[in-house]
Write a protein that binds this DNA or RNA. Sequence first.
RNA 1: GAGGGCGUAGCGAAGCUGGUUAUCGCGUCGGCCUGUCACGCCGAAGAUCGCGGGUUCGAUCCCCGUCGCUCUCGCCA
Length: 613
Amino acid sequence: MVISKDLLLKKGIDMAEEAFSQRTITCGGLTKADAGKKVVLNGWVHRDRNHGALHFINLRDRYGITQVVVDDDASKELQETAAKLRMEFCIAVVGVVRLRPDSMVNPDMATGEVEVKADSIEILSKCLPLPFMIDGEAEPNEDLRLKYRFLDLRTEGMQKRMKLRHEFVKAIRQYFYKTDFYEIETPTLIKSTPEGARDFLVPSRFYPGKFFALPQSPQLYKQILMVSGMDKYFQIARCYRDEDARGDRQLEFTQLDMEMSFVTRDDILAIMEEMFNEVFIKVMDTKLPEQFRRITYHDSMNTYGNDKPDLRFNIEIHDLNKLAVESTFALFNTTVANGGFVKGLCAPNTEGVSFSRKYIDALQDAAKIYGAQGLAWIKVGANNTLSGGVSKFFVGKEELIINEFNAKDGDLILMVAHENWKKCCTSMGAVRTKLGKELDLIKKGFEFCWIIDFPLFEFNEDENHWEAAHHMFSMPQSQYLDTLESDPGAVKGDLYDLVLNGYEVASGSIRIHDVELQKKIFRICNIDDATAQEKFGFLLDAFKFGPPPHGGIAPGIDRMVMIMAEETSIKEVIAFPKNTAACSPMDDSPSFVDSIQLEELHLKAIFPEKKKD
RNA sequence: GAGGGCGUAGCGAAGCUGGUUAUCGCGUCGGCCUGUCACGCCGAAGAUCGCGGGUUCGAUCCCCGUCGCUCUCGCCA
């Protein structure tokens, strides 16, 4: 709604002398029905087309674009003002709405049936020549966009994405308010704890040498809120991790953090399914399945080659150990004999794509990044024939491999042999993902799935001890409670990730609420009781006072909106993101500070030595 | 920490098996224009081809280094 003079008068507020002609309607608000009305528009000059005695101005604000006309009967003053206008000048237009002549209607414009004949134009502020065009025709490089983010945010694309993000968060809040969750804020100056990513530290002026940390997530606080009997909590929470940025990762990002008491895994999954169903109807006008597919971590790795499968296309990875020993390929034979793995997939014959040597080499490069030594390949021909690559090792076994994949003439079979199961899976997964994109197999839409039954621990080779695969507060599945210490690698946790279109968009678990079990997990992760008490004492203490069973999840807002906006970088859905080098070109942060500030904080900067030749 | 890609007027691009007056579109400045909607027309300004070095008679182009951005691996429970 526009704040209008009428509204102020209705409330009995005396108008001060007018600072400027204040809008009575927005640039997206006019329709045929408004013809004849006197209106005031405020906005930016999107484009102007000066025909001398006739002058058109496309005036833009958040709501749309309206054509303003300065006619040939305009006063000299008005004509002169109009001639001075340049792109992105901020102006006020007083005028009268009129219908456009039939032949002048612009069907591509929401307001294309009308125009505003200007009686006067007021320049509210001028604009320098633009560093880049904001009409979205050509996209300037990202660094420049970030430096002039205030202009970049004026573009149609950014305006749309900010709106989408707003609608998304609004719908989420509406769901949680309706379902009786409390929205509770947790601190952003917290205790640094040793799990997870590198912390951002905040020095304490009162306590020399002591630091707060910025939260990597509100994890421990939300668990304590459960101990406090809050029962159902959520928060749109900012989180901070001092690690290298990526397309889908920023130093600071936003999570929908939620936690519930007296629940099991399936309760959390059901709530999330219900929430996303409601939100996607509201925001995307899209009906999701009422239940999302569930895939175990093990199956996901085996079939899709990662723990965040893109289910929008259906290439599947096959276990080829049995088939491999039928071949005469020594690498396959020995890999299987040594307890290793052979896996493969079938790339469908695709019009316009030739499976050339060069093409296969590029696929091999993708596999090698994830640890494959090579990529074996076979071309499938007509009438159950094989050719090229390692086909000579499958002489007489053609039907075996062709039937395995139900392969057709022109298909390409790609295989990896590796001693290490995970590397075998992930390198095939990289090939699968690349094929999905390059063969244009990816269907439009939203394919959610749950990944469940993750291992609770993984072994850290560098530091030679077990650590939590997710985090140390997740509950082991009950059938492993007796073998936690004797066989940590086999333990599955009550963990779940939500995956959408190949991205991990949420991660959660049922939590431990038993002090002794929690301590046991700490010990397996090489944290002794004394350290545990020092770092996590507040949580352990809380758990001595009747903690309820509880669990939760935390969907990433940025990633979700990115996918909904069909973008591949979360920077596109964050108003003021950092660049890859972890700084903000607009405000030039981080920056040096005054030495007095450092002294106050009892800090001294130590600069790394410059590299010598 | 490692690898790939990119770097040419304010912006987006072209050029290069080594020789050009370095090209085009948008924007900017000046002029013309009565129905445009990426308005049109005429004219002008604007580039040490990221930076440093090398090869060469000659480098925007080839080589080495360096800086910046970007994507990826590591890292990110």
